[in-house]
Design a protein around this nucleic acid. Structure first.
Length: 705
DNA sequence: GGAGAGGGCGTTTTT
DNA sequence: CGCCCTCTCC
């Protein structure tokens, strides 16, 4: 079977597929067949005799890598044996485990997850007696945020505070102290966090020339997907791996950069041609995913960006239906309307081909309730992960102790279930274990029978061959009574999760691999799309995916864009790109929901909302508006015209300007209330905004008062 | 030193 | 409203 590159690819795609030697940068617009290009390139390499084991494919999620590899296998008609594919983090973890002694972890190390890292921050803060009695002191999650931001952006903590957290500057010294303590704690207990994986790998490659050469020789062809979302250290890793041969292809789209908050640096993609001299730049611009009316709308979103993208997507897929902007009366009725919509769409598409997207995990809760009520199955991506659930972490803590007796975090978790043992005793027990202080331990065993049982269990586990499945099975039996006591309300559900954990363990022979995979990419439910389950996802987790129908909810100020992003211009820009990513996921049908009020759990009341600026900005021609009527149904709304009937319609979606000839007061979504002082053009107004001064604004953005 | 009760507070996004 | 942190009592 030979592959039909002529028919299956367009010219630009073919160019990228066949450019196998030397550096290549592929700027791939949304839906432009980026995945297809990578898949065919994999196949082409192997078809021309490259050993699959010489290929390294770095992607944003493990799922993406697996999908690409299996698609390449299917067009090749044979397996890709030995190809390395995965995330930077998983690649780093695997490489570091093989060279643990070289990075100062002779006895191996344990990978921490976010909660572990936060707990260490708190531990260090308490140890240093910082923030005692100060209620407004930065919380552990804030402490960790600053530490990892500083690392990922490779700025001092002072630099991070200056740029984006000025309000924390009084705590600069404390933050530095916590950061230092945090680093020391990790060393002392053979722990590594997500950031360490990247930095340790970079360091290892920098220092260990033989290893670097070995990897460069092994990986003759490197492909990196989603390059716009790599950070500085990831770019250095790519450089180390590519070496002088530089057979590296980076694929990405600067308009879809949505991970700056964790240090992603668009400069990586923009400067790729400078770093890899002689790089070929190939642009994929034709869109194969979406119908033209959807692209008309997404092109408008990009037009509003401060940083201009020379990107106007076009498609040959036509449609006579415009995207819809729906205005429900509240987030509660939004949930009901979305359910109705899903049922309707379910007649046309399989449910797993319909997605509801939102800015933050919690925003789908009302919808989840509504879906459950009518019995529609759903699969949620983003939000709390499998391995983050307390009962899973409980069970894993025993496993971690078998693997790494220095893992204080695991000790804390395991000992937390022993009655009568609190934080202080944990420290003492930990010290006693490592100092072989049997007298102290013996005393404690007498006092706390549960403690004796725990130690007996751990010893038994350490005596077994280190097979994840066998150990988990034993642990589950031991943990059962603890589970029932700790979670009397919902332990059956949690038990199901634990059984699932046992299933996953069955697929592993190596303990470290098992633990690492769980933390790195481990939601077993994500592995495949459930048939007939509608997809609920954060926009971030929807990256790279597509559906026939996409519904976006909660498109109101403070939610999308997030309230936290309203302060700094560059954060708001990232929200805009996020909105762009969300809308470009849709193939045929796109619906944007803008509830007029949302439930505020602080007050227990419904707060009125302002439509998201990203919706407000859209020109009237690119969508059809529908309002929920008080009676419950949806009614199409004819946009009001600002100008004389013969001019183009351009009324703002939610707050149309009335008669422009009448000067008076108006409201702007950012500048607030202002006085109109002149009308230099039919649709332009000079407005004096208290506190902001005189601005000239297009009428569409003003609401007349 | 641990466990339970009251009070402030505030929901991004992820490997 | 629910979480997390702190304070107080045993």
């Amino acid at each position: 079977m030979s592959i039909d590159f002529e028919n299956d690819l367009n010219e630009a795609q073919r160019e990228a597929v066949f450019a196998t030697e030397g550096p290549v940068l592929v700027i791939a617009g949304a839906g432009s067949g980026k995945t297809r290009t990578i898949v065919y390139r994999l196949a082409h390499l192997v078809e021309t005799g490259v050993d699959p084991a010489q290929i390294l494919l770095l992607t944003f999620t493990r799922k993406a890598a697996q999908e690409m590899l299996s698609r390449a296998e299917s067009i090749l008609g044979r397996p890709l044996t030995g190809t390395s594919g995965g995330t930077f983090h998983s690649f780093a973890y695997a490489t570091l485990r093989r060279n643990a002694a070289d990075i100062g972890f002779a006895g191996g190390f344990t990978l921490m997850d976010r909660a572990d890292s936060e707990n260490v921050c708190k531990e260090v803060k308490d140890e240093l007696e910082l923030g005692k009695g100060d209620r407004s002191y930065p919380k552990k999650s804030t402490l960790l945020d600053m530490i990892t931001k500083s690392r990922n952006k490779e700025l001092s903590i002072e630099g991070v505070l200056e740029r984006e957290a000025y309000h924390l500057s009084p705590y600069l010294e404390d933050l530095n102290a916590v950061a230092a303590g945090y680093a020391r704690f990790k060393r002392d207990h053979a722990l590594a966090d997500y950031d360490d994986l990247l930095f340790l790998l970079d360091e290892l490659l920098e220092k260990n020339e033989p290893l670097r050469n070995q990897l460069q020789t092994r990986y003759r062809y490197i492909m990196v997907d989603e390059y716009q979302d790599t950070n500085l250290v990831q770019a250095r890793i790519v450089r180390h791996l590519a070496g002088t041969r530089g057979n590296v292809m980076a694929v990405g789209d600067d308009a879809q950069s949505i991970y700056a908050f964790r240090g992603a640096n668009v400069a990586n993609i923009l400067e790729f041609p400078k770093i890899f001299e002689g790089a070929r730049v190939i642009r994929l611009e034709r869109n194969y995913r979406s119908v033209q009316p959807i692209l008309d709308l997404t092109n408008e979103i990009l037009k509003g960006a401060t940083t201009k993208f020379d990107k106007t997507l076009y498609s040959e897929l036509q449609s006579d239906r415009l995207p819809e902007v729906v205005h429900p009366l509240s987030d509660q009725t939004q949930a009901r309307l979305v359910v109705d919509e899903i049922i309707e769409l379910g007649r046309k598409y399989p449910l797993h081909d319909v997605a509801v997207l939102f800015r933050a995990g919690y925003q789908s809760f009302p919808l989840e309730v509504a879906l459950t009520r009518v019995g529609i199955d759903y699969q949620k991506f983003g939000g709390i992960r499998f391995h983050e659930a307390a009962h899973i972490k409980d069970v894993l803590s025993y496993l971690r102790l078998v693997q790494n007796p220095h893992d204080l975090l695991a000790w804390q978790r395991a000992l937390d279930h022993v009655k009568g043992v609190g934080p202080k005793s944990v420290t003492k027990i930990y010290q006693a274990v490592h100092a072989r202080d049997d007298k102290y331990l013996g005393k404690m065993f007498k006092k706390h029978e549960q403690l004796r049982e725990l130690f007996a269990e751990l010893d038994a586990l350490r005596g077994l061959p280190p097979r994840p499945a066998a150990l988990i099975e034993r642990i589950l039996a031991f943990y059962q009574p603890i589970l029932v006591e700790r979670y009397p309300d919902d332990y059956p559900k949690r038990q199901a999760g634990l059984e699932q954990l046992g299933q996953i363990a069955a697929g592993y022979t190596d303990m470290e691999q098992f633990l690492g995979d769980l933390s790195l990419d481990g939601d077993p439910d994500d592995e495949q799309r459930k048939e007939n389950a509608v997809v609920l996802s954060t926009v971030h987790s929807a990256k790279g995916l597509e559906w026939s129908a996409v519904i976006l909810i909660d498109l109101v100020e403070d939610r999308f864009p997030s309230r936290k992003a309203m302060q700094r211009a560059e954060d708001l820009e990232e929200e805009r790109r996020l909105m762009y990513v969300a809308c470009t996921r849709a193939r045929e049908c796109l619906k944007l929901f803008v509830p007029a009020s949302v439930y505020n759990r602080a007050s227990g009341l419904s707060d009125p909302t302002l439509p998201s600026p990203f919706v407000q900005e859209l020109p009237a021609g690119v969508y059809e508006r529908k309002n929920e009527s008080y009676g419950g149904g949806l009614r199409p709304v004819t946009p009001l015209r600002v100008h004389a009937p013969d001019s183009a319609p351009s009324a703002g979606s939610a707050a149309p300007v009335g008669d422009p000839s009448k000067l008076g007061f108006c409201r702007h979504k950012i500048f607030g209330k202002g006085k109109i002082i002149a009308q230099p053009e039919p649709n332009k107004f000079k407005v004096n905004f208290p506190g902001f001064g005189i601005k000239t604004i297009v009428g569409d953005y003003l609401e007349l008062l």
